[in-house]
Design a protein around this nucleic acid. Structure first.
Lengths: 120, 120
DNA sequence: CCCGCACATTGACAACCGTCGATATATCTC
DNA sequence: GAGATATATCGACGGTTGTCAATGTGCGGG
């Protein structure tokens, strides 16, 4: 068997070895997909401002007409952004009379923040 | 000047009043734009897995060939994603010999997480 | 000096995203 | 019920994004 004839196929493995997987498994593709949906929801300047406006608001809620003006966007566009944030589970929508009040889902942003801090 | 002739333009303001800005200013458009650039960088399932793989790696660094296989993506695509993360200030790139080692910029993810937790 | 390897860059293409104008829906008032 | 108001939805358009195949670049070994 030529016990250690030496330099057979393991000759240059000691130093320049790259491409050895870490052993620790990656985040699953499904979890990455789910998380990316939430991050995509806030990864837009206008939606970041929407969240900022709502959380800085007096009663921690705001209706569409409160948000249209400071963002300098049309009402359909603001409504579209709010729907994305609601679908992502970040905002809560409550209709009272003619108005729709949006508030931040408790813990939603903290959960996302936890994803970023946990690996470190 | 008709000091207070009364109900001039402020007649129906008492009850169903909506659309009153909160007073607290929104996040500035510039800051929102800058933050969205960083959030966009991680708001992709494959880039989330890249960050996860690197931070779970033994030496907290990995080269491209370590990352191509677990993501089942071509080498140019992985290189493209890594460049986006580097440009966003989330990853650090260090070339040693033929290989390029990527590591997470210390504090980068925590800074992003802070943006999400601070308003609450 | 030439070849192989790891990685970066380019160009192309389909899919998706943000925005708007127009229109639909729902609720309150008279 | 008619009209006004707040919001949602639709259709369209330009811009961006993720992916790949092909090619370029830089370093190390024989």
């Amino acid at each position: 068997m030529a016990a250690n004839t030496g330099l057979a196929t393991t000759e240059m493995v000691d130093e320049g070895r790259c491409c050895v997987p870490s052993g620790a498994p990656a985040m699953s593709a499904e979890r990455a997909e789910a998380l990316s949906r939430q991050f995509k929801a806030i990864a837009d300047p206008n939606r970041l401002r929407l969240v900022s406006l709502i959380s800085a608001s007096a009663e921690n809620e705001a209706c569409v007409c409160d948000l249209t003006e400071p963002l300098e966007l049309g009402q359909p566009t603001v409504s579209h952004h709010l729907k994305i944030l609601v679908d992502a589970g970040i905002l809560h929508r409550e209709k009272r009379g003619v108005w729709a009040y949006f508030s931040i889902v408790p813990g939603a942003l903290d959960a996302l923040a936890g994803v970023l801090t946990e690996p470190k």
